[in-house]
């Protein structure tokens, strides 16, 4: 059995990617299961999905804590989420990454096998949209050889209909483009079977001891949602304000659904990095085209 954990952002198709691989595996006669991390669904927020593929029936209904492979659809997540958490020594990390940023991933290459591909570019080339999930499947197949590319024809057709062929092309391109870097460090020894140790698990799963909770689970601190930085959900770029074109009409501020646009000391409109979700509403509403959405740097 191989266990794979997908990391992405809400809306990027991580769950769909896991489902497609499971369907293709099942169509090949294998056993597979795919499921999301259940919970509130929020566009741009970090999400994970889980996939198991096996030659025999799978008797597990738990999350994957020690995956053999991680598939990261959006490398900016590395700053927000410990995507490598529990990844087995010598395991593979399949990363969506433009070529010029590949170097920044090298520190992880010491212990892990890196499979990198510019999946977003592959998606742009073939689908015309930056939806990289199917391309990432291509990279996963290149790295792991898990399932035949052709086995995806039917699941893609079922899922995407007339867009299936474009997705298949995106997947195929990523399959060919993906680069594999074997771990640079010493080959890890296969770890001996470990004793089952559950100590500390409850401390990890529970926020606090029941006696420490406020009465009835009340939240005593007013306004603590300010600490919830929804700006980390930004995935389609940040707004850039061009003061030369701006007439200070204030429509951007009015339309911002997050109230994340304000004026600085020089009366210039700026956005709040902590809460801007990058929806682009301000850029669409600006009558002067003084706001553009631009890609953000990561890592």
């Amino acid at each position: 059995m191989i266990e794979i954990r997908f990391h992405g952002r809400g809306g990027q198709g991580s769950v769909t990617a896991a489902e497609l691989v499971a369907q293709a595996a099942i169509n090949e006669g294998k056993y597979a299961q795919a499921f999301p991390s259940f919970g509130p669904e929020r566009r741009g927020a970090p999400v994970s999905a889980f996939l198991r593929v096996s030659d025999s029936q799978i008797f597990l209904r738990e999350k994957i804590e020690a995956p053999d492979v991680i598939v990261v659809l959006d490398a900016s997540l590395i700053e927000l989420v410990d995507v490598f958490s529990g990844l087995k020594a010598g395991g593979s990390a399949v990363m969506n990454c433009p070529p010029h940023k590949r170097k920044s991933l090298m520190p992880w290459n010491e212990s892990y096998r890196l499979v990198t591909v510019d999946a977003t570019q592959a998606a742009m080339n073939n689908i015309g949209l930056p939806i990289a999930n199917t391309a990432m499947i291509g990279a996963l197949l290149k790295g792991m050889g898990l399932i035949k590319l052709d086995s995806f024809q039917m699941p893609l057709q079922t899922r995407f209909g007339r867009l299936a062929e474009k997705n298949f092309q995106s997947m195929t391109q990523a399959f060919h483009d993906a680069q594999i870097a074997e771990p640079s460090g010493e080959a890890p020894l296969s770890s001996p079977a470990q004793e089952l140790d559950f100590s500390g698990i409850i401390e990890k799963e529970a926020l606090m001891a029941w006696k420490s909770l406020a009465l009835g689970g009340d939240i005593l601190e007013p306004g603590n949602s300010a600490r919830f930085l929804t700006g980390t959900w930004r995935m389609t770029g940040k707004p850039v304000f061009h003061s030369d074109a701006c007439t200070k009409c204030g429509l951007c501020r009015l339309f911002c659904p997050e109230d994340a646009i304000f004026r600085d000391a020089d009366e210039q409109f700026i956005y709040n990095e902590d809460y801007c979700k990058g929806c682009g509403q301000c850029a669409r509403e600006c009558p002067k085209g003084a706001i553009t959405m631009e890609e953000e740097a990561w890592v």
Binding site: E205, A206, L207, M208, A209, W210, L213, G216, G217
Partner: peptide, 12 residues
């Protein structure tokens, strides 16, 4: 109150 607190609220 997600899985990280629900059980503790019930215990309380």
């Amino acid at each position: 109150g997600g899985p990280e607190v629900y059980t503790e609220v019930k215990q309380q």
